[in-house]
């Protein structure tokens, strides 16, 4: 495990993270979050103090393996049910805006 403490968070980084997370934060929100997250990250960074290389990682408290079901068709939602909460539909399909922008 590299013993490198990541550099403090800055607002450009928060803006980048927001774009990765697809949240159109305002400039004010980015500024406020940069400060708040800085304090939080400083506090939680202490996990690396005890996370020595000999300790294995745990992703799941009670791991189960090979959870399969028989590969046979079961009940599914109808088209109407699946579309019942859609913000916009076009016949039997979900309707969305263009996937690519003009410059793409």
């Amino acid at each position: 495990m590299p013993d490198t403490t990541p550099p403090p968070l800055d607002s450009a980084q928060v803006a980048h993270l927001a774009s990765l997370a697809r949240i159109a934060l305002t400039a004010d929100e980015i500024e406020k979050l940069t400060g708040e997250l800085g304090v939080i990250i400083e506090s939680i960074a202490k996990v690396s103090e005890v996370a020595t290389p000999d300790v294995p990682a745990t992703s799941h408290p009670i791991p189960l393996s090979n959870v399969f079901r028989p590969d046979v068709p079961g009940a599914t939602l109808t088209v109407e049910q699946a579309l019942s909460g859609a913000p916009e539909r076009d016949g039997d399909r979900f309707k969305v805006s263009a996937i690519l922008g003009e410059e793409q």
């Binding site: 495990m1 590299p2 997250l37 939680i44």
Partner: peptide, 20 residues
């Protein structure tokens, strides 16, 4: 942020070890 490349080991990876 915690899952970002470069920080993953220091944060998320360490947190999973704390879990152990």
């Amino acid at each position: 942020y915690a899952l970002s490349a470069g920080y993953y080991d220091a944060y998320y990876g360490s947190a999973q070890k704390v879990r152990t």
